[in-house]
Design a protein around this nucleic acid. Structure first.
Length: 314
RNA sequence: GAAAUGCUAUAU
């Protein structure tokens, strides 16, 4: 159990090599990791270390006589979906059922999210109905997942219907629900609609987080209202919400599109002052901005800079 | 001692 705690900690910080070594150390001492330990490591590999490693561990676990449980399968199925191995995910679900394991609410939310990302809303709703038939009451995560799927397919009116239904069903919307919808409105160019939801969110006592702010900042950028976007970033800091790399990437991309490369430099400096490192998204936005502005030399220069910095930090 | 949902770039 204490090994599991350590392995889990290493997984959460993405140090998969070290956590795998810890598992080996355990076995060298003659201990056979139990299903919880394996599940923690499998989940870690799904999130950071690659889906192949996760599948290998799963096989290893079975060879060692450990029985994967519902959590093991749910983690692994989620990992397969996220690695776009949809067939493998489906196969694992079947296997799990064959072994007599009963899917729970989280299993269903993972399956539904997989369908959503494959833009298969029919299957997502089929699974939703199935879980209801089995006696589960879809929670806020399941509903948020469906709302996201509807939004991504351009079915915003139906997403709003679901929001209303959540209220009457007592599965109260949370800030993720609102952020999903705000983002969708922003992307269709309906900033006023997004702002209406923003107010409604506050009225319901919900507090925006960094993703909510990022979505709305993006909305202002899409409208070319860059000053207001930058102002909103200031507001979020005042409200005690710390911007992340995405926040700055959104704003930098906005200024790049507008050809305001001086502003880009200012924002980039502010980002680094906050201790945030530009990533490949930051760089591709800036390189593209310079190209669009016709400054190919600067674009090349930054590309070189990116290659150097990003190879070092690895 | 373990698992699920929302945000960013990619010219021609």
């Amino acid at each position: 159990a204490s090994y599991t705690v350590l392995i889990n900690a290493l997984c959460k910080t993405g140090e998969m090599q070290a956590s795998r070594e810890l598992l080996n150390e355990m076995m060298d001492r003659g201990l056979v990791p139990d299903e919880v330990t394996y599940t923690v490591l499998i989940d870690g590999f799904c999130k950071k270390g690659g889906s192949l490693g996760a599948l290998e561990l799963f096989n290893e676990m079975v060879e060692k006589g450990r029985n994967p449980n519902v959590m093991t399968y749910t983690s692994l199925i989620d990992g397969m979906y996220k690695a776009d191995k949809i067939e493998e995910a489906g196969r694992l679900f079947e296997e799990m059922l064959c072994k007599g394991l009963v899917p729970n609410e989280l299993t269903y939310s993972v399956l539904i999210n997989g369908c959503v990302n494959a833009e298969n809303m029919d299957e997502a709703f089929r699974l939703h109905d199935e879980m209801v038939k089995l006696g589960f009451v879809p929670n806020v995560v399941v509903n948020n997942t469906l709302i996201n799927g509807l939004c991504k397919c351009g079915r915003i009116p139906e997403a709003i219907e679901l929001l209303k239904q959540m209220r009457s069903d007592g599965s109260l919307p949370d800030s993720v629900t609102y952020t999903t919808l705000i983002d969708a409105y922003c992307k269709t160019g309906d900033l006023p609609g997004a702002l209406k939801l923003w107010d409604e969110m506050w009225d319901n006592g919900l507090i925006p987080d960094v993703v909510t702010y990022n979505s709305l900042i993006h909305g202002y950028c899409i409208q070319g209202r860059l000053k207001e976007a930058a102002k909103l970033l200031g507001e979020m800091v005042q409200n005690g919400i710390f911007p992340n790399v995405n926040t700055y990437n959104i704003l930098i991309h906005g200024f790049c599109k507008a050809g305001e490369m001086q502003e880009v430099t200012n924002v980039l400096n502010e980002m680094m002052r906050r201790g945030l490192e530009p990533d490949h998204v930051t760089y591709t936005a800036i390189i593209n901005g310079h190209r669009k502005a016709g400054n190919f030399l600067e674009a090349l220069k930054i590309q070189k800079e990116m290659e150097e910095i990003l190879s070092q930090s690895k």
